[in-house]
Amino acid sequence: MPINDVSLTHHGGEEASALLEELCDTYADAYGVGPGEDKTAAFRRRAQKQFTRPGFSLVTARAEGQMVGFVFGFTLPAGDTHWWGGVQPEPMAEFLEETGSRTWVLSEIEVRRAWQGKGVGRALHDAALGARGEKRATLATGPDAAAQPVYESWGWRRVGRIPGDEGDYYSAYDLFVVELPVSR
C-alpha cells in the first residue's frame, strides 16, 4: 500500500491513554516480539508515564483503519538536566540549559514491519516535529542502532553519549539533536 493511503492524526495525552493497546501492538510488531513480552511491557510502562508529561504529543499513522506507526514525545521541563546527565563529550553549559520550552524529546518512533521502508517513519517524524514550537528536538538511541544513519539523513546530529540507567536496554545511549523547525 502506498504512503498516500496512510492518514496521520495528532493526539494529546488523554487520547494516547485510550490508544495504549494499539500502541503496544504496533510497538511489538515493529520489533517482532509478542505483546506480552518484557520489551513490550517496558514500553507500556514508559509510555504511560510520558502521556502526562508537559508538551506530550502523539502522531499516529493508519491505513485501512489499522495503526501502522506512531511517534511521540514530550518537552523537557525548565531546569531538567537529567536528560543530559553525564553526556560526553561535555558540552558548554548553555547547551544543557532547559527553559521548559527549549527542547522536545522524540521518545518513540515505531512502524510496523510490513510498513517499514515505505516513508511512514519519515512522515510521522515530519508531522510530529513540524507541529512543535520548541527550538530543538533530541532523541536517544543505542550506540549501534541501525536507525542512526536514518536520523542523520533526516538532519539529526550526534552530540554525545550518556550512560544508561539500571534496567535500561543499553549501558549507554547516543544523544542526537536537530534544530526546529526541521527543513526537508
Rank of each mutant, 00 (worst) to 15 (best):
P35N: 08
E37L: 03
K39F: 14
T40C: 15
T40V: 08
A41W: 08
F43S: 05
R45S: 14
R45L: 14
R45T: 14
Q50E: 15
F51T: 10
S57D: 14
L58R: 11
V59A: 14
R62C: 04
A63K: 05
A63L: 02
G65Y: 02
G65V: 00
G65H: 06
Q66F: 00
Q66L: 03
M67V: 12
M67T: 12
M67I: 10
V68Q: 03
G69F: 05
F70G: 01
V71L: 11
F72G: 11
F72D: 15
G73Q: 00
F74V: 07
F74W: 13
T75I: 06
T75K: 11
L76V: 03
A78L: 07
A78N: 11
G79M: 01
H82I: 07
H82W: 15
H82N: 15
W84Y: 08
W84Q: 08
G85M: 13
G85L: 15
V87W: 05
V87L: 13
V87A: 03
P91T: 00
P91W: 02
A93M: 11
E94K: 07
E94S: 12
F95P: 06
L96I: 10
L96N: 07
E97M: 13
T99R: 11
G100T: 12
R102P: 09
T103W: 02
W104K: 02
W104N: 07
W104Y: 10
V105M: 06
L106E: 13
S107D: 14
I109A: 14
I109Y: 12
E110M: 15
E110I: 01
E110H: 15
V111Y: 03
R112K: 15
R112D: 12
R112W: 09
A114T: 03
A114E: 08
Q116P: 11
G121S: 05
G121H: 08
R122M: 04
R122Y: 02
A123G: 00
L124Q: 07
H125M: 07
H125N: 06
D126L: 05
D126G: 06
A128S: 14
A128T: 04
L129T: 04
G130H: 04
A131W: 10
A131N: 05
A131M: 03
R132I: 00
E134V: 00
E134S: 04
E134G: 01
R136T: 03
A137F: 01
T138H: 11
G142D: 09
G142V: 02
G142F: 02
G142Y: 01
P143L: 12
P143A: 06
D144Y: 10
A146L: 11
A147G: 13
Q148R: 15
V150L: 09
S153V: 02
W154A: 09
R157N: 11
R158N: 08
R158P: 05
R158S: 08
G160I: 00
G160A: 04
I162N: 01
P163V: 00
P163A: 09
G164V: 01
D165Q: 14
E166M: 07
D168G: 09
Y169P: 13
Y169D: 14
A172P: 05
Y173K: 06
V177P: 04
E179A: 13
L180V: 01
P181C: 12
P181Q: 06
